[in-house]
Design a protein around this nucleic acid. Structure first.
Lengths: 338, 338
DNA sequence: TTGTAAGCGTTATCAC
DNA sequence: GTGATAACGCTTACAA
């Protein structure tokens, strides 16, 4: 398969410079005559030439791509973040390598970082903690990395303040007058996701700081799925003294909880109040009160940060950016019956 | 930056063979002594060695990655398909390059195929027709390609039978006794998506073939979004003689339509019947009758086909695989009032 | 079946 | 500011 592709040599020859200069000009290095840059760029443009990432990488340059490591692809939060990531990378002409790690509780399916590091210029890690066995070596490798939805000392990150968002959401239920509030979280025990742990803390802090008379909260688990949310709500309703209001850690679980309530002949908002978390497209239509988080922005911001780290690894700072959330109140949360 | 990475030379030396043999052994070529293969593989394993994709590509080998070109990332259908794609590719130790093309009506954001072809071993194209300007050159390039959700002469593809699925869904409404049936499609005019055009045909065929007394169908457009579905339903209700049943081309639009009906004080299923298309997780909870399509399977199948084409380009056949759909009837579709 | 050696297309080093 | 030229790590004729 003879390669008919044109190479940097062709460009160099056509522009009347050496390949070395052509290479520099194409990368717009600073120690090149602006006139030369212009000429080379023009030729490249004319021939519709782009450097071979493989050759560039091999010679010690960039790969022109970054890897996003995510536990899931199709869940609402993750696909939303990835969408934002993609938009920014595309503009920067950087390729996106998608790696689905699968549930962190299960065996990881991610190839070792040191292998990947040869293929990409940097890493975007969604929700997974960098010390996770799935990410073995990420912290040691000096590869530019940005965390999304979690944080880690010395590593730049983009997230929301899950703890205070959860506290506010729960507080909203307490303010309405509810005294038996429950929670639907992802999974029992210590969650592998920092965000989930933070939301748990926020919920507990709100309950602990509330007026006297608030009973110990019931907690159920829905694994962040619709069906799981339904099961969890059923579990809560099976309690001797079920909560009149429930903080649910994701909108999708909240939708499932709504279904459970309906199956029990209960009316959302009247019999049991619900507050979700996410800002899912269907939240308005299902009248779900929820904490809206800017998923696409989160992804876009993280991607921009990563690109910055890649071009300027000197920036020793590791900012931890926190984006804003907003509690949007709808009919699913109302004062208790009595 | 001295590379501390171990190379094929190290492996070759350690195994007592030449780099050429090591290269062959690592790829398990057939003209290598099985004993040699075993020995080399063992050494590679021990040193945790993997070939450099960049070097391999440069030397004429595989890149070990494929590109998925998709209009959207976060919409239900696409994220579901991608999820299936990813699962298969991961097992095959093949990387996934994600390229979001954006809406085909708008200006394309995809880098020219001939550039991409240097970075990947093959293409997976979701929903976009290969003659789309966004995909300029894909058909000419001899790169292995598999289409998803569309088809094209001479190119292998994986899809469902959108036309007959739509016809069956519409027929279901007619069988219930509805005589004024409408449709909510994506966009007016000729859709850039073959699937949408096929669903339109299916709907029209059902209506055309129905008993006398069925009026000319009303059609509205919802751009495949929840909000769009709501707007479209409102448009249908504004007609002098609104339909009593509507075939909606996607579940998300159907959810929006439900919301519109509710806003008008109408009851889904009693006042107006609805049939969606997709099999969205929330369809059961919203009692939506819908055509369920196996999105993850579609992606997985396509990925497997592509991997096959890559390893064996000889397979001159271009199969057009059709996966099965299923009409799941729920409370949103019932006989008309009268 | 295995070895030798010539690239693959770029970047980095070191002169000029 | 620019030009030679040696890598970079691998695959693949061609030989043996």
């Amino acid at each position: 398969m003879k390669s008919l592709a044109i190479t940097i040599r062709d460009i160099a020859r056509e522009a009347g410079v050496s390949t070395a200069t052509a290479s520099r000009a194409l990368r717009r290095l600073h120690n090149v005559d602006p006139a030369t840059i212009a000429r080379v760029q023009a030729v490249a443009e004319r021939y519709d030439y782009v450097v071979s990432a493989a050759a560039s990488r091999l010679a010690g340059g960039r790969t022109g791509s970054v890897a996003a490591i995510t536990p899931y692809i199709s869940r609402w939060y993750f696909s939303g973040v990835l969408s934002g990531v993609e938009r920014v990378l595309q503009q920067a002409e950087t390729d996106l390598l998608l790696l689905a790690a699968g549930d962190p509780d299960r065996v990881s399916r991610i190839p070792p970082i040191r292998h990947l590091a040869r293929r990409v210029d940097g890493f975007l890690v969604l929700s997974l903690d960098p010390d996770s066995s799935a990410l073995g070596g990420l912290l040691e490798s000096e590869a530019p990395t940005v965390l999304v939805g979690t944080k880690w000392p010395g590593v730049p990150s983009v997230r929301i303040d899950d703890e205070s968002a959860a506290r506010l959401a729960t507080q909203h239920l307490l303010n309405l007058g509810h005294r038996r509030v429950g929670m639907i979280a992802g999974r029992p025990g210590r969650s592998p996701f920092l965000a989930e742990r933070a939301r748990k803390r926020g919920f507990e802090a709100a309950v602990a700081g509330s007026l006297a008379g608030v009973g110990p909260p019931e907690v159920a688990y829905g694994d962040f799925t619709v069906d799981g949310g339904e099961t969890a709500m059923n579990a809560l309703l099976a309690q001797p003294d079920p909560p009149t209001a429930v903080f649910v850690m994701s909108d999708e679980m909240a939708f499932g909880a709504m279904r459970a309530l309906r199956m029990h002949g209960l009316v959302v908002g009247s019999d049991v109040s619900l507050v979700g978390f996410d800002g899912h497209e269907l939240a308005p239509m299902l009248e779900l009160t929820t904490v809206v988080q800017p998923v696409a922005d989160i992804g876009a911001t993280a991607a921009r940060m990563l690109l910055g780290r890649i071009t300027d690894p000197g920036g020793a700072e590791s900012p931890e950016i926190e984006l804003q959330t907003q509690l949007v109140v709808r009919a699913s949360s109302r004062p208790p019956r009595d």
